[in-house]
Design a protein around this nucleic acid. Structure first.
Lengths: 204, 204
DNA sequence: AGTTATTGTTACCGACCGGTAACATTGAAT
DNA sequence: ATTCAATGTTACCGGTCGGTAACAATAACT
């Protein structure tokens, strides 16, 4: 959380700045923060997992908090990558796009390695709603809400806001439920059915 | 996490065993674990908040994990107390009971002091699905599913399982969403509407 | 009153937390 | 070949983690 003096003058070596180290650290962060919890994992563990000394890590990144924010950035990328990938399967058919997104989401969430939504987990681990990480979470969800509202409107739903809200809550519910319900119950199995009904009732 | 020898023979003093201390510790646990996170709060903090020395705490309770499980027991009581209270408002009218539960849940979840579902938060803080706390979480949610299915069946829904799943996911979604979405957006405002539609479509 | 078990207090344990100072090593530009 | 900045290594900082040993005070039983 402290300021560090930027390197004065131009570096003699080109952009050699910890070339692969930086990448390995970020990958370690992605893995450990997601599967073990950002709060539970220490920087020592990150450095060791990345095969790097702790000091090397701290010369690449300001603080653990900085790593946390970068982690959320990457998770955001991954999420929208999945989202757009589902959407792309039914161009111009918003209803099917919505259902497809939930079908793919369900498929991912039912994997045993799934640890839920990174953003939901972060929100659970950091109580202060003003924490920078929490603000990123809120921003991600706000964007999701906008996109869902766009889709809901495009379907010609009788009440697009209501539909978008229902969908958003089902997304959050699927994420949270994937962790709170026992995996053996496979409650998400019929989530696409629920979504289909929710969309259809707005179209009749 | 260690075994401790149970007091052999009968205690000389009656049941004087830390009479109010025990109560104060549990109240401290409820407050701190919920609002600051079970993992983030140390036993020192619990003892200080309860106005008790740490050693006094450890003579009343085996370990922090034991406190965690007791905490979940109490949260379970609170949850079902709310649940039954909502149900009682419309005896014999399952559809209205369902809606009422969500109305009350929404009201609670929109409070600024709300920190989401204790069980969801615990699931986020403890990655290991086999952790005793996680098992309690799963059990709580399984019971909720049973109760929702009973209500859904009682409404005469065309597909009670689908309805119960939708409702369960909306519950989880409301809990998670109350923390992930920015409070100012007040996304839960129209959750009761969503529920009403979800129930009605099963009854036509 | 004297015994004895339970209480609260203090101080401590080894381990880990996030973060850093100091120094040996490296390697590219001169 | 020498210089010099960026790197990696090691050891360490004060603080906190969950948990405990040791001891003085207390209070109920005989």
């Amino acid at each position: 959380m402290k300021k560090q003096a930027k390197a004065v003058g131009k570096p003699r070596r080109e952009i050699t700045q910890g070339p692969l180290a930086q990448q390995k650290i970020l990958e370690a962060v992605d893995h450990l923060f997601y599967f073990a919890g950002a709060r539970a994992v220490g920087v020592d563990a990150v450095a060791k997992y990345a095969g790097v000394s702790k000091m090397a890590l701290y010369r690449q990144f300001e603080s653990k908090d900085a790593l946390l924010l970068l982690y959320l950035d990457r998770m955001e990328e991954v999420f929208w990558s999945h989202f757009e990938s589902s959407i792309a399967k039914h161009s111009g058919q918003p209803s099917q796009q919505i259902v497809q997104f939930f079908v793919d989401l369900t498929h991912r969430a039912e994997g045993l390695e799934f640890r839920g939504c990174p953003f939901v987990n972060i929100a659970g681990e950091f109580p202060d709603p003003q924490h920078p990480a929490r603000l990123k979470v809120a921003q991600n969800k706000a964007t999701l809400m906008v996109r869902l509202l766009e889709l809901a409107t495009a379907t010609g739903a009788s009440d697009a806001h209501r539909l978008a809200l229902g969908l958003a809550l089902l997304v959050e519910g699927a994420y949270a439920g994937s962790q709170t319900f026992a995996p053996a119950e496979r409650i998400l199995r019929r989530l696409p059915d629920v979504v289909r009904v929710m969309v259809d009732v707005e179209l009749r």
